[in-house]
């Protein structure tokens, strides 16, 4: 008999709501682990630190620069690079567009493009849980 109890994978809160996720490196056919902020103000799938983006080799499977519109931010527009890849959060795998800034360092964040595909529970300043 199947259990109807919901199963959750939880991550500790530390200054921000965070989750640990793995991003797929298409060139190396491997997954690299990283810690991601949950950012509901980010309309997009995944934003990566530039160093992480390059470690994954995503600059080799990028989308053409000319088709990537500049991102709107509170401080003005920034030019992005983007590549198609996959992200694994709590054993759930999604195909995503991963972005990083063309100039600057960037940050590891998960945006609404991924959050809208998950059931996420936030326990105030304690933990972030993803329903499996």
């Amino acid at each position: 008999m199947k259990s109807s109890v919901a199963r959750w994978k939880c991550y500790k809160y530390s200054d921000y709501y965070r989750v640990t996720a793995q991003v797929y490196s298409p060139i190396n056919d491997t997954w690299l682990k990283g810690e991601f902020l949950i950012d509901t103000g980010f309309r997009g799938d995944v934003f990566l630190e530039r160093r992480f983006y390059e470690e994954l080799g995503l600059q080799l499977v990028e989308l053409p620069l000319r088709i990537i519109p500049a991102a709107r931010t509170l401080a003005g527009s920034i030019q992005l690079r983007a590549a198609l890849t996959k992200i694994k959060i709590a054993n759930l795998v999604f195909v995503v567009k991963a972005y990083t800034p063309l100039y600057g360092y960037g940050k590891n964040m998960i945006g609404r493009g991924v959050l809208n595909r998950l059931i996420t529970l936030l326990k105030e300043r304690e933990k972030t849980c993803i329903r499996l």
Binding site: I38, G41, F42, R43, L63, I68, P69, T73, I78
Partner: peptide, 16 residues
């Protein structure tokens, strides 16, 4: 393929 415009406008979750 077309890419949608991205917005990074600060997280509202941190106000909770």
């Amino acid at each position: 393929e077309e890419v949608e415009r991205v917005e990074i406008l600060g997280s509202s979750l941190e106000m909770l």
